Simulated assay, not measured.
Amino acid sequence: MVDSPERTLLATPVAGDHRRWQRLINELNPDELTETFLTRVALIPGYDPSPVPLGELRRTGRLTFRALLDELASDEEPGAIAIAHEIGVSRARSGVAIDALVTAIRQDFTVLWESLTRIARASDAELIVRHTGNVLSTVEAFATQTQSAYVAERQRMRDAEASVRRGLIATVFQDPAPSTEQLTRIAADLGLPFTAPLAVAAATGEDIPALRVLIAEFDRAGDAVFTHHLGDALIMFRRDTRLPGTRTEHLAQDLFSLRVGVGQADGVGELRAAALTARDLSRLLAAGETGAMTWRRGWARLAAGHLLSSGNSILADVRGALDACGPAERVRLEEAARSYLATGSVAESAAELFCHRNTLSNRLRRFAELTGVDPTIPAEAARLVVGWA
């Protein structure tokens, strides 16, 4: 609905209003306004009991009403209100919830309006109506400035907390390794029991963004997740809790669908070793492979990599012995050994390779005679498992 000219005029201050409006404002007592405000604030959830001392509430309340009255008396657009910044910062540091703070600020308008209408005469009715917008805009300006200061201070506090947390976590991974006493203090500062099991994951290269997305999901679910950059790897760790049916539990399962290395640490004292292992496991993922590289999936590859880096060829003698066979026999012998290592059962491997059990046993025996490595003896089969990983 479009306002009529008469309606617009009624809601807008006119030239003759200024003197009477100032008299009304001057009759308002900041101390009395503050005491009324305090009785209302005490009823607001988040201020009952108040995290801010009563003396501080009274002091800032008095300064607030003085500032608001000065703004209202000027009859100009509200400008910067200095006390707004102080209140925003102090309430953020006191842990007042933002919704409780906003509700408290809204009481300023109610207190002002009720006080104005109480002292006004019947002849002031139209004057009061014409200044409704002034009162609203002044309180809104104060509320906006206070909220801006609050939000900025909360962000600064979060940044400071994150910086401290990063420093604590970096200490866990430093050389030389921190003492048990230091690790115990770090665990406490991070809010983790020293011996609490920790789920650890690592991603490298192009796999890092997907892990970051999951970390953000954990954060939104209210789960405390910690991160650290270890060389080229992003390390994530969290307390390994089991909460069936919760969002957190679903996210914990989703982790295993990512291209990451995963592991577990029995407390902060073992975190560094677990993170290094998770990083090494993540590096084993070949192009095109999907899912997490667990210890069970990757231990043989990891062992092979360590042996090769130390100059051990692992299966050079086996390959040399198999080279003496014809191509067809080599394929049959190797597939028999690989299948048996995977199943541990002659019957299952025979079915997998569509041959008789005796045929498979003969091929395994022939493999052992040629290479000197018997796939049916665990101590010898381990070399094949690692070499073929």
Rank of each mutant, 00 (worst) to 15 (best):
Q264I: 01
F37I: 05
S361A: 09
T184L: 08
D317W: 14
I25V: 13
P375I: 00
A350R: 02
Y340W: 12
V129Q: 08
L63N: 11
G205L: 05
A188M: 13
A202K: 00
Q22V: 04
E114R: 06
D48Y: 14
A273M: 09
R212N: 02
R185H: 06
A170H: 12
L112H: 02
L28W: 12
A100I: 02
R259E: 07
S123E: 15
D317T: 05
P327D: 05
A162T: 09
T241K: 10
A382Y: 09
Q182L: 02
V52E: 05
D70C: 03
P45S: 02
N358I: 03
L315S: 11
A278T: 05
A143K: 04
G79C: 09
A265N: 05
I98P: 02
T117C: 09
R20A: 13
A224H: 14
I25R: 03
P178T: 00
T146Q: 02
S310Y: 06
L101K: 01
D374A: 07
T376G: 01
L9Q: 07
A216L: 12
G311E: 11
A203K: 01
L168A: 09
L370A: 02
R296Q: 12
R66E: 15
Q155Y: 06
S345L: 04
T8L: 15
F109N: 02
E217D: 14
G95P: 09
V386Y: 07
T371M: 00
L281A: 07
P5A: 06
V262G: 12
V89M: 09
D108V: 01
S257V: 08
A287E: 15
P53K: 03
A42Y: 14
L190A: 11
V89L: 07
A336T: 11
F237R: 03
I377K: 05
Q147F: 14
D189P: 01
A15W: 04
I235N: 07
T290E: 13
I81Y: 03
D266W: 15
R106Q: 10
T359E: 12
R332Q: 10
A73K: 13
L315C: 10
P49F: 10
D207G: 05
S123L: 05
T204G: 11
H250E: 08
E380Q: 12
D124C: 04
H229N: 12
A278W: 14
R93K: 15
G267E: 00
